[in-house]
C-alpha cells in the first residue's frame, strides 16, 4: 500500500517536471515494466525502444494520472503495454510466434495464482477460472504477449473467424463477473 502511495506521489512530482522523480520511478519500476514490454515484443532491443517511448509518455502525461480511477502501478503498466503494442503493430507483429511453447507459462493453470496477489487479482483469477479454456487462453495470450487475433488463432488452433468472437465473449463475461 505504501509503495503505491509513494508511486502516486512520484507521479505528482513528475507532473511538475521533476526529473529526479522520473528517474526514481524508473529505478523502482524498470525491471517489472521491462518484463511487461519484453513479454509482448520478445526482443530486448525492441523492448528498450518501447520503454523509451513509454517514459516519454509518462513524463508528458503524469498529470493525467488519477488515483481515484486506479493504482499507479496499473497506470504505468498500461502505458508500457500500449507503447510495446504500438511498436509491435508498427513491425506488423512480425515477432517470432512459431515458438510452440510461447505463452505456456502465462496460460499454465498455476500461473493464475500469480495473478491473485491481492483482492482484485483474486477476483480476476476466479472470474478467469469461470471462462471456457480457449476464451481464457486467448485473453491471456493477447494481454501478456500482445498476440493478434490471427496469432491467437494459430496458437490455439482455432479458426480466425471465431477467435474475435470468443475473445469478445470472454471480455463480456469477465466484465459481468467482476461487476
Amino acid at each position: 500500500m505504501r509503495a503505491e502511495a509513494s508511486l502516486a506521489d512520484l507521479l505528482a512530482a513528475v507532473a511538475a517536471d521533476d526529473r529526479s522523480a522520473l528517474r526514481t520511478l524508473y529505478q523502482q519500476q524498470a525491471t517489472r515494466l521491462f518484463g511487461v514490454a519484453n513479454a509482448i515484443l520478445r526482443d530486448r532491443e525492441a523492448a528498450a525502444d518501447a520503454m523509451q517511448d513509454a517514459f516519454l509518455r509518462i513524463s508528458q502525461r503524469a498529470g493525467q494520472f488519477d488515483a481515484e480511477r486506479g493504482e499507479a502501478s496499473a497506470w504505468l503498466g498500461g502505458i508500457v503495454r500500449h507503447a510495446a503494442l504500438d511498436l509491435a503493430r508498427k513491425r506488423g507483429r512480425e515477432m517470432p510466434t512459431d515458438d510452440p511453447t510461447l505463452g505456456d507459462t502465462a496460460v499454465a493453470a498455476e500461473a493464475l495464482d500469480r495473478v491473485a496477489a491481492d483482492a482484485e487479482g483474486r477476483r480476476l483469477r476466479d472470474c478467469l477460472g469461470a471462462l471456457d479454456e480457449k476464451n481464457r487462453k486467448g485473453i491471456l495470450l493477447a494481454f501478456v504477449h500482445g498476440l493478434s487475433h490471427a496469432q491467437v488463432a494459430t496458437r490455439l488452433d482455432l479458426p480466425l473467424g471465431t477467435v474475435k468472437a470468443w475473445i469478445r465473449r470472454g471480455l463480456l463475461q469477465l466484465r459481468e463477473c467482476l461487476a
Binding site: A30, T31, G35
Partner: peptide, 29 residues
C-alpha cells in the same frame, strides 16, 4: 485497465539494459 491490470503479473520481471535510463534521459525534452 483496472480490471485487467493484475494480468501484468504474468510477465516475468527482467532487468533492462544498463544504459536504458541514460537513453531515456537523452530523449526527454
Amino acid at each position: 485497465e483496472a480490471r485487467l491490470a493484475p494480468l501484468a503479473r504474468l510477465a516475468l520481471p527482467e532487468a533492462p539494459p544498463p544504459d536504458l535510463w541514460s537513453r531515456i534521459e537523452a530523449a526527454l525534452p
